[in-house]
């Protein structure tokens, strides 16, 4: 097994049934992502990007195929082990950020660490570090509704990074952002990859992001249409 490989899928498929109606969201998708790599999964709406991310994050079970994270199959794990993976190994930045509205920025970022049972001091230290990294120092006590879309997304990124995951999955990160914020986001992700050595998989239909990433996967109707994997 390639030691540099962090994530691998083998002929991953996901089919949804709505009564007799069958929808193939993902069809035989195989991919490999190396440690510290940034992979952009792009494609039109409904191409299966979000489904793929949910499978990679262990939120959903594939109909066929498997997902291996660091050589361990997570697609057949029970809920208890998956929740631990979500706490410690995989961070997720959702399309709508999914911040808890009644919690402050600080509490949202601490959430994952709290579920992991980290000591208060360690949580405080890591939260400060992350808020500094994403440029939100001074906004700790604000609620998500008091932040702009770009700021909310940075809170979501800080939360995803809180437990120092090895893989961060981002779903349509620029969907609600203007061009300037999109560029800032790409820079932020790049600096995080450099600084924290985290592997990113970003699902997007923003070509600007795609062109700036070394590895790309184009999905169309649930299938891999083209693939470009950086050799660097």
């Amino acid at each position: 097994m390639d030691e540099k490989l962090l994530l691998r899928t083998d002929e991953l498929s996901k089919t949804y049934w709505n009564g007799p109606e069958k929808t193939v969201a993902l069809d035989n998708v195989s991919l490999q992502v190396r440690k510290g790599e940034l992979l952009a999964v792009y494609g039109p709406s409904g191409s299966g990007k979000t489904t793929l991310l949910f499978l990679l994050g262990g939120f959903d079970k594939p109909t066929a195929g498997k997902v291996l994270l660091d050589g361990i199959e997570i697609s057949n794990m029970d809920e208890h082990r998956l929740s631990r993976i979500r706490r410690t190994t995989v961070g997720f930045v959702f399309q709508n950020y999914n911040l808890v509205e009644e919690l402050t920025v600080l509490e949202n970022v601490k959430l994952t660490m709290m579920f992991e049972g980290k000591p208060e001091e360690e949580m405080k230290e890591r939260t400060s570090e992350l808020l500094d990294k994403v440029g939100l120092v001074g906004r700790e006590r604000h609620r998500p509704s008091q932040l702009s879309a770009g700021e909310q997304q940075r809170v979501a990124i800080a939360r995803a990074l809180a437990n120092r995951p090895r893989l961060v999955l981002m779903d349509e990160p620029t969907g609600n952002l203007d061009q300037d914020n999109s560029r800032a986001l790409v820079q932020l992700v790049t600096s995080i990859i450099r600084g924290e050595g985290v592997t990113f998989v970003i699902a997007t239909h923003n070509l600007e992001i795609v062109q700036g990433t070394p590895s790309r996967l184009f999905l169309n109707a649930g299938r891999v249409a083209t693939e470009f994997i950086s050799q660097s």
């Binding site: 939120f59 809920e79 208890h80 929740s83 631990r84 979500r86 706490r87 410690t88 997720f92 959702f94 999914n98 911040l99 808890v100 509205e101 009644e102 959430l111 994952t112 579920f115 992991e116 939360r159 437990n163």
Partner: peptide, 14 residues
């Protein structure tokens, strides 16, 4: 909010 808790790693028991 509970879905977010689960998504961020809260277990069934938690």
């Amino acid at each position: 909010a509970f879905a977010i808790f689960k998504a961020t790693g809260a277990s069934y028991n938690q």
